[in-house]
Amino acid sequence: MPHEARAVVALKKGAPVEVLPILVPDPGPGEVLVTVQACGVCHTDLHYRDGAIGDDFPYLLGHEAAGVIEEVGPGVTDLAPGDYVVLAWRAPCGQCRSCRRARPWYCFASRNADRAMTLRDGTELTAALGIGAFAEKTLVAAGQAVKVDPSARPEAAGLIGCGVMAGYGAAVHTGGVGSGDTVAVIGCGGVGNAAIAGASRAGARRVIAVDLDDGKLDAAERFGATDTVNSRGTDPVEAVRALTGGHGADVVIDAVGRPETYRQAFYMRDLAGTLVQVGVPAPDMRIDLPLLDLFSHGGALKSSWYGDCLPSRDFPVLIDLFLSGKLDLERFISETIALDDLETAFAKMQRGEVLRSVVVV
């Protein structure tokens, strides 16, 4: 028997979202029904609303969530009703060529629920990143629900599901930041500050935060930045070089995802340094770099997919760091809001006024 729930739906490209009743099926084989408690407002949700990711409208938005298992489907043995979970948009299949080569963090056939949630009239909804958690209930593949310590309140725990994991993993997993490294992070929103926290936690000697906004740079210092650069009136490449003895940083993380920030990150590296792009670009963006510069600078140019994380391994670890006071998730939360306030939260995010608005369901 389908479950009726209130949810945030983007009906058509660029139109304001609406809070509508939806129908959520009972879980089928390998699926779980989750009662959502909190869900962070991520820039990816705005990309979905604006048609920058696809045109499979209507979209059921929301993906950075924590909640409680309500029902489990046939064949689900490692989860039970009452389990407290953070939802992941990567659930390794165990069968694709990447999983078979022991690289499940690159799974090319990540699992989602097989059956769609719908509007009352039967119109199928496309769940954002296979989750759709701006809703009172959602249906996901069992592998997308990761059990964590229930001591972590959902407003904070849910942030692990996307932005925090993406930024933290970009530094620790993709960038391989180690003890004594110098790191520069371009863009000090939620993902960038998580990268700063990750780099600091990994033992970086110097973590340089780069942004256009002094308020965000102040916040970056609270996440572990040792130096800040306001690039509005300063050449950030020269500023980072000046802070690193003229050499550039060992690892540079672009948490913005624009051609100009990618170019800055490329030239901000030391020779043989690593560039990590974790900011998501728009489909029409292009980058043009001299091939000789690509060769002569050496090093590595990497894209970080979800912080190259393995949710079942990494989510519990980050929650434990939070509960032990070593990763301040609470500092990411700028405000808590209701489902009906999402358009206002989008506007605040576009103006750079918040790190994370969190919907409390």
Rank of each mutant, 00 (worst) to 15 (best):
F223C: 01
S179W: 11
S110K: 07
R153N: 15
G187N: 02
V191H: 02
E238S: 06
G167E: 00
E155Q: 13
G169E: 04
T118M: 10
Q144G: 11
L212Q: 15
P104G: 08
G246Y: 10
F223N: 02
G189T: 06
F108V: 09
A116D: 06
W105Q: 15
P150V: 05
T174P: 04
E124S: 08
F134G: 00
G203E: 05
F108S: 13
H247A: 15
D211I: 05
G163A: 05
A220Q: 02
E221I: 10
E238R: 15
L125T: 06
E238H: 13
A202S: 09
L217K: 04
G158W: 01
E221G: 10
R111D: 08
A141D: 09
A102V: 11
D211Q: 14
T182A: 09
T234I: 12
R232H: 14
G178L: 12
R241V: 11
G203Q: 10
A225P: 00
V164A: 03
A184P: 01
T123D: 03
G190C: 10
D181F: 14
G130K: 05
F108E: 15
V172M: 04
T234C: 02
A152T: 08
K216H: 14
D227H: 14
C162P: 05
V148Y: 03
G233S: 15
V164Q: 04
R111K: 15
L119M: 09
G245V: 11
K137L: 09
V177D: 12
N112F: 12
R205V: 00
V146Q: 07
T123L: 00
S179N: 12
L212Y: 12
T138V: 03
G178V: 08
A133S: 15
E124C: 02
A202D: 06
T228D: 07
A195S: 09
A194D: 02
A242S: 14
L212S: 15
G122E: 07
V185I: 12
V191N: 01
G132K: 13
I208K: 00
G189W: 08
G161S: 06
V140E: 04
A102S: 14
L159Y: 13
G175N: 05
I131W: 04
Y168F: 15
G198M: 08
I186T: 06
A225N: 01
T234Y: 14
W105D: 14
A156H: 09
A194N: 03
A239T: 13
A171H: 07
A170Q: 10
R115K: 13
V240Q: 07
A199L: 03
D114Q: 09
Q144A: 11
G187A: 06
A145F: 05
R232G: 13
G178R: 14
P154T: 03
A135Q: 01
G189D: 08
A197L: 08
A225L: 04
A209T: 07
R153L: 06
A135K: 07
A145P: 00
V164Y: 05
T118A: 03
A116V: 04
A116T: 06
